[in-house]
Simulated scan of single mutants.
Amino acid sequence: MSKSKELNISSERLEYLNSMRIRRISTTVTQIFILLVFFILWEFLARFGFIDPFITSQPTRIVKTIINLYNEGQLFHHIAVTCLETFTGFLSGTILGTVIAVILWWSEFLSEVSEPYLVVLNSLPKIALGPIFIVWFGAGTTSIIVIALAVSLIVTILEVLNGFSSTDEEQIKLLKTFGANRLQTFTKVVFPSNLPVIINSLKINVGLSWVGVIVGEFLVSKAGLGYLIVYGGQVFRLDLVMASVVILCIAAGLMYKAVVILQKLLVKNHTKI
């Protein structure tokens, strides 16, 4: 009897899951279709002279450029340099920003004192500080990572701190009535309820870290995708520029997908708990 009940309930659940699966598949297929149409149209317009392939390049020339970079042994070297710089800036910006947000949430006095400085620093174009970082940290990888860190740090602090401050007051009051201290309040309510906020800051930092690294490589670099873009522009090799941009898009998309997978794992583990 109980087995038949489970079957009846699971059939409704199964129908819902099937509809969600079909929707996900149709969304993915549509996204791939749009991308294919874009590249086919781009190739068609360039091949038949509607646009100048020297200025806009074209998919087939981009593929040839990527193959040439691979044959020359440069492709994975430049990708690895940029990805390492981006991941380091991304990770350090997220961790440091979250830690500072915790400290500011812990001390209302520090939070109030730092608020105007955070607002000003957030509105300041951090890229303008690039030359200063180069003088301070030298013309190398460290400066590029620091630029990426500077771009993402303040945004992370403000995003996570706002989430901590917006935690349900009733839950906090309930814990306090049971004698919970500040640390217990943070570990039991504030941090767990703001995991989605931290994940959202990770998603934001994906884009910001790539922006910081590429700008840093524009200013000072001897390798990396940003270096290839600058070099290609200087010698009018637009195929190299567009190939680097395409690789950047793929790498950023994969990094964002990794964050989404992490989010699903955290949500799954959280629901089990």
Rank of each mutant, 00 (worst) to 15 (best):
L161N: 06
S166Q: 13
G224I: 09
G163R: 05
V155S: 15
V189W: 03
Q171D: 12
L240W: 06
G233T: 08
M242P: 00
N194W: 03
G212D: 11
G226R: 13
S166C: 08
I199M: 07
N162C: 12
V213E: 04
G233F: 07
F236N: 03
G216D: 13
I199Y: 01
N162V: 10
V235C: 00
C249A: 14
D239T: 00
I172C: 06
V206E: 09
E217I: 09
L161K: 03
F191N: 03
E217F: 05
L228V: 01
G224Q: 07
E170P: 03
G179I: 09
L174W: 12
P192W: 02
G232A: 05
Y231L: 10
V245T: 04
R182H: 10
Y231Q: 09
V245Q: 03
F178H: 13
F186A: 08
L161T: 01
T177W: 07
V241N: 00
S209K: 13
V151K: 00
I204D: 04
V215I: 12
T187C: 11
V245N: 02
I229F: 06
Y231G: 00
S209D: 11
E159S: 14
L238K: 05
D168L: 04
I229V: 11
F236R: 01
F191L: 07
L238N: 09
G226A: 13
S221M: 04
D168I: 08
G179F: 09
V206I: 06
V230H: 02
V160F: 06
F218V: 08
S201N: 11
E169T: 15
F186T: 08
F186C: 08
